[in-house]
Amino acid sequence: MERRTFNAASYSLSHLRRDGTRTATTIVTISITVAFLLLTSSLLFGMLTDGGGDRKAGLLAGDIPGSVDMFTEFRLDQEISGRARNSLMSYLLLTSAMVLMVGFFIMYNTMAISVMERRREIGILRALGLSTKEVMKLFLLEGAMVGFISWIFALFFGTPLILNLASYLINRGSESIFFVMPSMPLALVIGSLLVTMALSTISTYIATIRPVGSSPVAMMRTRI
C-alpha cells in the first residue's frame, strides 16, 4: 500500500475533491471577496499611513507591471479636505463590511447545502461511533481548507488584477477619485489570512452545528 495513513484531513480533502465543481466555485467566489477586501483595506491603509501611502511599506503596489505610481502622479492627497477624506474612508469601510457579509453568506450557503445533502453521511459517521464534535471537525476542516486556498488565490492572482484595474482607472483621467496609493504591509497580509479563516470557519460552524447534532437515526433515513 502506498498510502499508509488516513485521517480526518484526508477525509475532508477527498470530499472537496469529489464535490469539485462546487469547491471550485466557492473558492473562486471567496477569492474574489478576499481580493476585494484586500483592495479596500490596502487603500484604507494607504490613507492611514501618510495620507497617500508609504511606498516602502507597499508589498505589491509598486511592483505591479503597468501600474502607475499613484503617489507621484497625484499629490492631491495633501489637499484633500478632512471631510472628503473621512467620507472616502467611511465608504471604503462600508464596502469592506458589505463584501465581508456577502462572503460570509456565500460560505454559509455552500456549507448549509453541503450538510443538507450529506445528512445521510453524517448519520452513518455518527452510527460508526464518531461524536458530534468529530463530525463538526470534519466540516470545519473543509471550511478552513476552502478558506485557505481562497486566500492564496486572492493574494497571488486577485490582488494584482484588481490593483491593475485600479491603476487603469486612474490613468483614464485625473478626475478619478482614486488618488490614494494602496499600501499592503505584512500586517495586512497576515490580517487578511486571519479574516478569511475566521469567515470560512465561523460561517461553516453556524451552518452545520444544528444539523450535525440531530438524531443519527433520523439522518440515516434521509434519501437524497
Binding site: 500500500m1 488516513f6 485521517n7 480526518a8 484526508s10 477525509y11 477527498s14 459517521l125 460508526l128 461511533g129 464518531l130 468529530e134 471537525k137
Partner: peptide, 13 residues
C-alpha cells in the same frame, strides 16, 4: 472513499 479508507472511517480520529 476507497474500500480501505471506508474501513478506516471509524478510527480516523
Amino acid at each position: 472513499l476507497t474500500a480501505l479508507e471506508n474501513v478506516l472511517v471509524p478510527v480516523m480520529f
